[in-house]
Design a protein around this nucleic acid. Structure first.
Lengths: 222, 222
DNA sequence: ACACTGATTTAGTGTATCCTAAATAAGGTT
DNA sequence: AACCTTATTTAGGATACACTAAATCAGTGT
């Protein structure tokens, strides 16, 4: 199910990420220039990226784009690979500083996790690349992203259930009956700060559940 | 001008090469199976490949495909990279024999000549990959391909002039005047075994030249 | 308020690659 | 010699991305 982003997509994610570090969103024009692509093409791509089943970018007409949590994760993966590759090419294969970028730009889209881990290890798990840019650490990122609880979701966010952490058979049966299972998509409707009750819709059904239940459900925002 | 073959194209070339080692051509069906692509799609791709400005494959309806000299060269380049990569992944990055193939299949399309040369050198210019398959040597291939003389061309072959090896000013002026310069495309019409005269058309002009002239013209068949 | 400028989007296209279903050809059978 | 099977091709589409030209919107200065 989890489709790997295309090379083009990964390039867009990288660009959006680096152009929107300071909080604000990346403009169509800036992206076009960075990617050497006509602005109109960027608009089209952003629309597609934003309306995918798992949206990687958050796009508002005439306001540019930012990354969704999933998009940010994907962007950081690519950036990490890029920098690890640059470092590796320089230190192990004797490439000059100025030669590594191009090569890394092509390789970053095709290497496997195993390859990434391998060179990371060989390099001694570096924190900075040859240019002095930080190499993002996935371990810092993934848990943080993966461990968002449904109890922390607020309207009008939407999410997909990633896993359920419960061992009470009773509760598990209940969750299953209500379609609160991994893969289900849900839309938040309301949140009550008094009792922590969250109102949301899953599978056409609207339900209100308290934190005693929602804390066991881990989600992926989208 | 010299467009790099796309990843898809390179995969087709590899497949055609390996399926037609024993002289005969690769069938549409075999290619389809090898590439995990519908037969109809293969037909389409072969047609495109064969009718490109520089055809890489020689395709006849219902008879399958073989590689043109240019296609063979490109195929061997990819195969060389593939095998060098496999060897490199195994020896330098500690991948197991059975893990290297997939990775090499993805990387072979993106590494630069510099990368290829680098790992080739690090590996000590190996002749065989971890599987025992020979690693084609480009130096063996290129000159052989590049040094085809016009005097060796026979109808109905077509070719493009690659370079002219002459130092006689007189001859050079003559060749230039007749458009017999690098880049010119020519179509052979007839060959006379008695005197070695070759009749061919260049630039709309038909001409007949003997080996004294044609031996100085190096071509690339297509 | 109102026109100007630059940014952005829409509309209409093109290319590469793939797919499915339907037509056709090639070769061996009866 | 008509027939069947299998290989292959044609026809008609879909998808991902990119492009150009023509609208449209947003912010500015007047």
């Amino acid at each position: 199910m989890k489709t790997t982003p295309s090379h083009a997509t990964e390039d867009y994610l990288k660009a959006i990420y680096t152009l929107s570090i300071d909080g604000d969103s990346a403009s169509t024009n800036d992206l076009a220039e960075r990617l050497n692509i006509a602005p109109a093409s960027v608009t089209g791509m952003l629309q597609r990226l934003a309306s995918a089943s798992l949206p990687l970018v958050d796009y508002r007409k005439r306001q540019g784009a930012t990354l969704t949590p999933a998009g940010k994760k994907a962007a950081l993966r690519v950036i990490r690979r890029h920098r690890l590759l640059e470092t590796y090419l320089h230190e192990f294969l004797g490439f000059a500083w100025d030669e590594v970028h191009e090569e890394a730009c092509r390789m970053e889209h095709v290497i496997s996790d195993a390859f990434e881990e391998r060179i990371d290890a060989l390099l001694g798990h570096p924190t900075y690349d040859p240019h002095g840019d930080p190499i993002p650490d996935l371990n810092l990122l993934m848990p943080q992203e993966a461990s968002t609880r449904l109890s922390a979701l607020r309207p009008p966010q939407k999410a997909t259930i990633e896993r359920v952490d419960a061992d009470d058979k009773e509760l598990l049966r209940y969750l299953e009956e209500k379609s609160l299972v991994p893969g289900s998509k849900l839309e938040t409707r309301a949140y009550s700060p008094f009792d922590g009750n969250l109102t949301f819709k899953v599978n056409g059904q609207v339900m209100i559940l308290g934190p005693a239940v929602t804390r066991h459900i881990y989600i992926q925002e989208n």
